[in-house]
Write a protein that binds this DNA or RNA. Structure first.
Lengths: 129, 129
DNA sequence: GGCATCCTACTACAACAGTAAGAGCTTAAT
DNA sequence: ATTAAGCTCTTACTGTTGTAGTAGGATGCC
């Protein structure tokens, strides 16, 4: 599979790699903040599973510790996520947009940004047509 | 829990109830189309689990068959879904919109619809402010 | 060189999701 | 009444996710 499915915690771990570059397990774990973070071996298990899924790989060693780096890109993973989500809405974009927009969590800036993106996209579509 | 988490298949079953109103298990199963649909007892298991979660309930009987109806509304379930999804993006709306918009699956009509919604929302926000 | 610390590798387990078979009760048709 | 078809309930097994303990090897400090 070129694009393995990533669970929530797996995503959070990948997020660390995407943000920080190659990282050791200990540092991944500590990046979860001191409160309510998973145990070291929990993170370790997830990292191992991500390795099996080829979402990340061992880049090198420092001392006896492995340093892991992302193989899957953030964009690829997020695109996958969006697809998953869309499929729950029957793959139709419109109701998803509607739901998101009506969810009420949009700031004025979000609205403005979204409009800008949409206008750009519309222009691009026109050029391509 | 007022809003139980619903899995993909559970959602699909609820979808039938939302679309068709109270429905028997057999009819739910058959609404999955003749190809690759889950076995009758698979649907049944899911319905029972949805009942435990109080997402649906037995409305009445026809012969010896139970007729189930949705308790959770479509909007509530979809809102829950949107929240889940947002949390995977760190709860920030903007990157989600960006990802969705850039995902490329938008038709011209989708773009127009979304713009319309956004304009209405912006106007509403302004009135409220 | 010994001891505390850290990391790895392995193992385990509960919850949830998806899948479905089997036993037995109900109903409808003849 | 008999019997077939349909439904209900119960039970069970697989895979995935999240959680973590334990054993043992490697490192580093003094």
């Amino acid at each position: 599979m070129p694009l393995p499915k990533l669970s929530k915690l797996e995503l959070q771990i990948m997020e660390v790699l995407w943000n920080n570059g190659p990282t050791a397990i200990r540092d991944i774990q500590e990046s979860f903040g001191p409160k309510g973070r998973p145990a070291y071996t929990t993170v370790q298990t997830m990292v191992y599973r991500l390795e099996t899924k080829k979402a990340l790989r061992r880049a090198r060693k420092i001392g006896n510790a492995h340093i892991f780096e992302a193989v899957v890109t953030r964009d690829a993973a997020k695109a996958r996520l969006v697809d998953e989500f869309l499929s729950l809405f029957g793959g139709r974009m419109q109701p998803v947009m509607a739901q998101l927009i009506e969810a009420g969590n949009l700031s004025s800036k979000d609205v403005a940004d979204a409009e800008k993106l949409l206008r750009e996209l519309a222009a691009k579509k026109k050029r391509e047509a």
